[in-house]
Design a protein around this nucleic acid. Structure first.
Length: 263
DNA sequence: ATGGTAGTACAACTA
């Protein structure tokens, strides 16, 4: 039995609907975790996805942020519409659902971790605080001993080999030691980076800036990740980054990344 | 060292 989960920062679902719909028709993952939908829940084009066979859950926000989780499998429960511990945090960055699989169920989250630039500063402080909340929640989730996939735009470059020019990014919030250490600390709780688990090659990017010809020059970074619990890691079959989606007309600056499980 | 692009929304912010 096959169960696939994709993560894609679409950079506005309204601007990207043709790209996303075409991609879903061609690839059809069981679950797609979308980030930066940049619209309120009522403005999300849910019918377009329902017509493709997806159930739709969103945590939207006007202009910025916003996440969606769409699933061909039944959504048995919307477990969370925000990351715990953020009483004064009104940014739409997290949704967590339980979806049915052929072998039972899987827990899947779509998350959009704060960018954090410029660093240092209040935005960087917010990023690190959000990562601490994510760590605490990720630790709690492991106790369920379920197949769990935390998919999203983490805005963290984990390794030197995940950026075309490490020196140029040294002071960036996406590559600073504090960000990388916080990401590493989550993994050391017992989570695996799906890409590193099955591939781990250097120079495999998921984001290329619109500026400075980053895409044609392949000046990219790997910041979109699927962290998987042991019960999902044991069933992980493959991971694919779809660069073709980044090369399309009117593309998002992120490429989708898909993990496939024997679940 | 600056500016280059894209999206939202119509000025300026985010990335």
């Amino acid at each position: 039995m096959s169960f696939s989960v994709a993560s894609w920062n679409v950079n506005s679902i309204k601007a990207r609907l043709p790209n996303v719909a075409d991609w879903l028709k061609a690839h059809g993952p069981d679950v797609a975790c979308l980030q930066e939908i940049k619209c309120l829940d009522e403005a999300f084009p849910r019918e377009a996805f329902e017509d493709l066979g997806y159930n739709v859950e969103t945590v939207g926000q006007k202009t910025y942020n916003g996440v969606a989780l769409i699933s061909k499998r039944p959504i048995e429960e919307v477990a969370l519409r925000a990351l715990p511990g953020g009483e004064d945090d009104d940014q739409a960055r997290y949704i967590e659902c339980v979806v049915g699989t052929d072998s039972g169920a899987a827990r899947v989250a779509s998350l959009y971790l704060p960018n954090g630039n410029p660093a240092p500063g209040p935005k960087f402080d917010y990023k690190l605080a959000w990562m601490k909340r994510l760590r605490d929640h990720a630790d709690a989730l492991l106790a369920y001993e379920e197949p769990t996939i935390l998919a999203g735009d983490y805005n963290v470059i984990p390794r030197e080999v995940d950026v075309h020019d490490p020196e140029a990014w040294a002071d960036d919030a996406l590559f600073r030691p504090e960000s990388r250490d916080a990401f590493s600390a989550i993994k050391w709780l017992g989570w695996a980076d799906a890409f590193e688990q099955v591939d781990g090659r250097a120079d495999q990017y998921t984001f290329w800036d619109y500026q400075r010809g980053a895409w044609p020059k392949n000046h990219g970074i790997r910041i979109d990740h699927l962290l998987v619990s042991p019960q999902a890691a044991d069933r992980l079959k493959s991971v694919e980054i779809d660069r073709d989606a980044r090369g399309a007309e009117k593309a998002s600056d992120h490429a989708p990344i898909t993990a496939t499980f024997d679940l």
